[in-house]
Design a protein around this nucleic acid. Structure first.
Length: 464
RNA sequence: GUCCCCAUCGUCUAGAGGCCCAGGACAUCACCCUUUCACGGUGAAGACACGGGUUCGAAUCCCGUUGGGGACGCCA
């Protein structure tokens, strides 16, 4: 049997981090089994669904590198099919019209809460003749759920979970306006789309009982279920769009690499022994539901940063140059891009994110004269200027402008003067980068080139 | 309130009765490397929530307590 999984977000917000992980797990599971991964947009909430959200979700998935198979299914377009199934259940006596008003339901809930009972619909129209229907009330269609026994979910992650049917009430399948409810649409769509494995957030575990009852009523074979624990914020509270969680595009903007986010998300709630750095190819090979944990995990930026730093150092320089140029607004500037290209190895070892990388690379793109920051300015004492001036003389006529030769020259100069290399390097760094930290300074000189280097030194000498 | 789920270092996790006075990673601290900052290397500190069982033996099984989370909509 071919494995078919799906990701079914509702387009009422961006693709948040929890959704991204759910998508990743579904994608990984499908790819691991050589199966099919499908996308279904659950846009039945016409009020809150937006085109922007749909685009954001699709862009987010693409950016993460999660490709899906077949046509994207839009749930709202299938409303007639959902209604058809509800009517079918009605005909078979598995469902019934209910004329209870929202006000009555509210009273029911109040009473239940006061009595310490579970809040549920009392089934007052279950066996009543629709002829008794009050005039002017449009009915909903409710499932005639079993009143005794229990419903059991054989969950691939959570194990066997059971609940007494007395806890469940007759849920609404079709609203009074004829539109299907989420519970109903999901079941019909998963069935029609041939979904074999439903991998989703833990928050749907208790919904599964009710969905199972629909499968039973229709005599359909239910898919396998796997409920993965939710991702929480650093404070332990649920991390979801309703709590202002960030969309994946925010992570992109913060400068995280998709492969780093994928690796991080994979390790949140899933493990493979002591392995931490896991390539996507490796993940496809290893992924299984057994590796999923059952406890919720907290989102930790420090670890994401570390992983991102790893993938940054691993990343192709040309790709990084483009990313940095884009962030610095110097795309297409040949001289600058060349500097970035030569300087990238030294730059990328020092950054955790693309944002940081761009910030650190900025001094390569700046036009003279530089505006040193406060710490750099403090380095540029009168004493330092004297050293710089002498060093300029030593270096200006140098045959080679390679980092190694420049360093050798500087070391020789320091030795002759009886000073430490740092006493030369730091003022030089301040002059050339306008900062107190940077890639190795002789490498910086090489990247900048003779003319620019001497120019930046002269700027400082002229200013003091 | 009712029901459901969960519980190992600060965080992510390994651990599926003896291999564990609990391993790895991130973060933290120290040292090394070093022209700065990083990277890298070495090391330190740091956890089985609590209480009962079961067993020759429990982080691992059972029960309870506590704590956390989730679901209870004509939202998804």
């Amino acid at each position: 049997m071919t494995v078919v999984t799906r990701f079914a977000p509702s387009p009422t917000g961006f693709l948040h981090i929890g959704g991204a992980r759910t998508a990743l797990f579904n994608w990984l599971f499908a790819r691991h089994h050589g199966g099919v991964f499908r996308l279904r947009i659950e846009d039945t909430d016409r009020q809150r669904s937006t085109k922007e959200a749909i685009d954001a979700i699709i862009d987010g998935l693409k950016w993460l590198g999660l490709d899906w198979d077949d046509e994207t299914v839009f749930q709202f377009a299938r409303a007639p099919r959902h209604a058809q199934v509800a009517l079918e259940m009605l005909k078979q006596g598995k469902a019934y019209y209910c004329y209870t008003t929202p006000e009555e339901l509210e009273q029911m809930r109040e009473a239940a809460r006061a009595a310490g009972k579970p809040m549920r619909y009392d089934g007052r129209w279950r066996d009543r003749d629709p002829k008794d229907a009050p005039p002017g009330v449009k009915p909903v269609i409710r499932l005639k759920a079993p009143t005794s026994g229990e419903t059991v979910v054989h969950d691939k992650v959570q194990g066997e979970v059971r609940v007494s049917n007395e806890q469940l009430d007759d849920m609404i399948l079709l609203r009074s306006d004829g539109n299907p409810t989420y519970m109903h649409s999901v079941v019909v769509d998963d069935h029609d789309m041939g979904i074999t494995h439903v991998i989703r957030g833990d928050d749907h575990l208790t919904n599964t009982f009710r969905q199972l009852q629909i499968y039973q009523a229709m005599g359909w074979e239910p898919p396998s279920f796997a409920h993965i624990p939710l991702i929480h914020g650093p404070d332990g509270a649920k991390l979801s769009k309703r709590h202002g969680a960030l969309g994946v595009e925010a992570y992109r903007d913060m400068g995280y690499l998709p492969e780093a986010l994928r690796n991080y998300l994979l390790r949140l709630g899933w493990g493979h022994g002591d392995d931490e750095i896991i390539s996507t190819e490796q993940a496809v090979q290893w992924f299984d539901l057994d590796g999923c944990g059952r406890a919720p995990s907290r989102f930790d930026f420090a670890k994401l940063d570390n992983l991102n730093g790893h993938y940054l150092r691993q990343a192709d320089d040309a790709r990084l140059v483009q990313e940095v140029a884009l962030r610095l607004g110097v795309t297409g500037d040949a001289t600058t891009e060349e500097r970035l290209t030569i300087g990238m190895p030294g730059l990328k070892a020092r950054a955790k994110t693309l944002k940081e990388l761009a910030d650190n690379a900025r001094f390569y793109t700046l036009k003279r004269p530089l505006a040193p920051d406060d710490k750099a300015r403090a380095q540029l004492t009168a004493e330092a200027s004297k050293v710089l001036k002498e060093l300029r003389g030593v270096v200006a006529g140098s045959q080679s402008w390679s980092g190694a030769d420049l360093e050798a020259a500087a070391r020789g100069f320091a030795k002759a003067k009886g000073i430490k290399l740092g006493q030369i390097a730091q003022p030089l760094r301040a002059a050339l980068t306008g900062a107190t930290t940077s890639p190795p300074i002789f490498e910086v000189m090489q990247v900048l080139g003779r003319e620019e280097t001497l120019g930046r030194i002269d700027d400082v000498l002229a200013g003091s």
